[in-house]
């Protein structure tokens, strides 16, 4: 289970400097903790492609940003993702909420988001891990550290 304070603490412990985000109804609950964090800055953007490019600029300038978005925004942001990960080769780290994942697993949703999220990440050749309710913020931090150690772009999916 993830909550704002534990996620912020884990990110700060990793040395993350900026969270570039466009919230959804699940990760949006983290906003108070992100907004009041002492060691990282919350950057609100208008679209997810913009989030990825802004994070890339932060990377180029020596900072350690992550991008926090919903899968719907991932679908919109393909060109940015392609460019930053595969042309600029920056180790972008994304945390992506997967809308309707749990309902889809129960057969209780017709939302197409869960159907396409993982295939799209594979198509963009972006390695990822899915962290469900059994995981904790420490697992998110471990994924971040592992990706940074490999200097590799990476995504964490959070089922919603």
């Amino acid at each position: 289970m993830f909550d704002g304070p534990s996620v912020v603490a884990a990110l700060e412990d990793c040395g993350v400097t900026h969270v570039v985000w466009l919230p959804d109804s699940d990760i949006g609950r983290w906003e108070p903790a992100l907004r009041t964090a002492s060691c990282l800055q919350l950057l609100r953007v208008c679209r997810e492609g913009e989030a990825i490019a802004l994070a890339a600029g932060l990377h180029l300038g020596g900072k350690r940003p992550i991008v926090l978005i919903q899968c719907t925004g991932l679908f919109e942001a393909g060109d940015s993702l392609r460019n930053i990960v595969h042309d600029l080769h920056l180790p972008l780290f994304l945390v992506i909420g997967v809308r309707s994942y749990h309902a889809h697993q129960r057969g209780a949703s017709t939302d197409s988001c869960p159907i396409f999220t993982e295939p799209i990440l594979r198509a963009w050749q972006l390695p990822y891990v899915l962290l469900d309710d059994r995981h904790r913020a420490a697992d998110l931090a471990a994924a971040y550290r592992q990706a940074q150690a490999k200097n590799q772009a990476f995504a964490v999916l959070l089922p919603e």
């Binding site: 802004l54 940003p65 042309d87």
Partner: peptide
């Protein structure tokens, strides 16, 4: 070049915030 379409200002914005 190559770029992400329309994302030059956002890339610049991130750089300016970092520096």
């Amino acid at each position: 070049v190559p770029s992400a379409m329309g994302q030059g200002p956002s890339l610049a914005h991130g750089l300016a915030l970092a520096q």
